[in-house]
Design a binder for these strands. Sequence first.
DNA 1: GCCAACGTTGGC
DNA 2: GCCAACGTTGGC
Length: 153
Amino acid sequence: MPNYWIFKSEPEVYSIDDIKRDQWTYWDGVRNYEARNFLRDKVKKGDIVLFYHSNCEEPGVYGICEVIKEGYPDFTQFDSSNKHFDPRSKKENPTWFMVDIKFLKKLKKPVTLEEMKKNSRLKNMRLIRKGNRLSILPITKEEYEEILKMSKS
DNA sequence: GCCAACGTTGGC
DNA sequence: GCCAACGTTGGC
């Protein structure tokens, strides 16, 4: 039984079309402890990821990916030339973790944040709660299936 | 570009 | 350990 997740990305930085082109990516740059805990402890190989575009024209879910490698140290934390460099993190005890995901498909029709807010079956999702800033969010199987349904209607 | 929400930092 | 200041996220 896979778990289901929403991963947020700003399409200007990395979009669903970028991962479609690359076929897979490492999910680097997560620098929030709650999201880190999910990546390190909870996100498992075979889990399903909804790819969400944030901070853009039409925020929403644009595609589906699958976890192909479980939590391992995010190498960008040790790279002083990287935007996500963390000078306090030690190699023998890394602070930040990443997973690898592969592209499965783009949704025929993206499911927008606005549509998800209107759907009462999705009202418990942290994603649609005001002020939510977490970039890695767990969702239930039911919520996942509901979003897929919405992409077909 | 604005600004509310919220996590992190650091002085005390 | 409190909490004000600050930085970031992300919808609008």
